[in-house]
């Protein structure tokens, strides 16, 4: 109790945050028991029937939910890979521009889409990608199209991945630019004296120097393997593309909230949360081991 006399201000300072975390994080975690119930809102958690793992069995037997898991993986993994490569290359290219004002200007423009919501961008894209929209008119000049970017299953996936890269690549560049600024200039000077071309310098100094940070960013992104981007998909999809565009999060929303299959919805959510948690723990472990990365 002596320590409490000294530390009570700290406990008091943490009290508001704890109340919010308990109410909005920890109590909902208790709700995962619904995944093992045939949950009926009028019976509540206490009164609903326990059905063991039936919801999970159902999850792997239903054709649509298996397809949804596959869609999620497909979209999320491609996003993850391209959202690593594109910013990586972009940062190296941007670093070659020596005029600071121009470099700044480009940075300002490419960071911007990250801060706009998918409602705004979705509204814009639906208009731009319509059959009579700006993009199809532009492609029309070259005798291409029109393409149903948001109405055709294969085009939809492509559009989702490309538009996500478009929104995020600039912002993801920041971390690589920070690392680039940290490379010791004397390495380049030495290479210069040895007569190495800029391409050689890039391949033998720049790229190897960035590999550790690339590994960290890549491993930390592992936790998102089941996050295909609810906001984006929800604002771009329509029943025509459910087959290949529907993902876990949008599926949960429709089955649980709109159709009222609460127990089943919870089960899918739990499936996703548990896998994500395991991946996050592994990735943090690896990032710590390889690069000494710590969040706290």
């Amino acid at each position: 109790m002596r320590t409490l006399r000294k530390t009570w201000p700290f406990h008091l300072m943490l009290l508001p945050a704890m109340i919010f975390l308990i109410l909005f994080s920890y109590i909902p975690m208790g709700g995962i028991v619904m995944a093992f119930q045939d949950y009926k809102p009028w019976l509540g958690i206490g009164g609903s029937e326990w059905i063991g793992l039936d919801n999970f069995r159902y999850l792997f037997e239903r054709e649509d939910s298996v397809q949804v898991i596959w869609n999620t993986l497909f979209i999320a993994v491609l996003k993850l890979v391209f959202n690593l490569i594109v910013p990586f290359v972009f940062a190296i290219l941007l670093n070659e521009i020596r005029k600071t004002a121009l470099q700044r200007g480009i940075q300002t423009l490419v960071y911007l889409p990250h801060f706009l919501s998918w409602v705004i961008l979705g509204g814009i894209l639906i208009d731009l990608l319509a059959t009579g929209g700006l993009v199809n008119r532009f492609l029309g000049f070259f005798g291409l199209g029109p393409y149903f970017f948001l109405g055709d299953n294969d085009w939809f996936r492509f559009t989702v991945i490309l538009s996500d890269i478009w929104k995020e690549f600039g912002y993801s560049t920041i971390i690589f630019l920070a690392a680039l600024a940290g490379i010791d200039p004397s390495q380049y000077e030495a290479a210069e004296i040895d007569g190495a071309t800029r391409l050689k310098q890039t391949l033998h100094i720049t790229v190897p120097s960035l590999i550790p940070i690339l590994m960290v960013v890549g491993t930390l992104a592992l936790g998102n393997v089941l996050n295909a981007g609810f906001d984006q998909i929800f604002n771009l999809y329509n029943p025509l593309v459910y087959e290949k565009g529907d993902i876990i999060d949008t599926f949960v929303y429709r089955t649980a909230i709109l159709n009222g299959e609460m127990g089943f919805g919870t089960a899918i959510g739990l499936f996703k949360s548990v896998i994500s948690m395991v991946l996050i723990l592994i990735s943090y472990r690896l990032a710590y081991k390889w690069a000494g990365y710590r969040i706290f």
């Binding site: 909005f24 994080s25 709700g31 929303y253 919870t266 959510g269 739990l270 949360s273």
Partner: peptide
Amino acid sequence: MIFNGGLVPFYIV
């Protein structure tokens, strides 16, 4: 940050 109960329990809370 690394674990959550998912949409449905959250909605009910």
